[in-house]
Amino acid sequence: MSESELDHLSSELDLILSAVARVSEVAKDDIAPTSHPLPLLNVFREDVITPSLTADEALSGAPAKEEGRFKVPQILGEEA
């Protein structure tokens, strides 16, 4: 982020955070949290092979590719 963006956002974030902090007023210890609207547990399917994207399709939107792989900038440092 640029410095000017940071200046702009920092004051707003402060305002937003103080507004949303109200949730702790009613969040008593005995209330169970809801992470999801559906009471679904693990959903499984039969372990059968189904058609998927080909390698070319999967690579079709890559910013850079080489020999059928994603080409990415250096991830590890020189000394690694």
Partner: peptide, 13 residues
């Protein structure tokens, strides 16, 4: 706990 955790409890309410 104060933010996300509390928000999830509000969701229950």
């Amino acid at each position: 706990d104060a933010y996300y955790g509390s928000a999830q409890k509000v969701r229950t309410l």
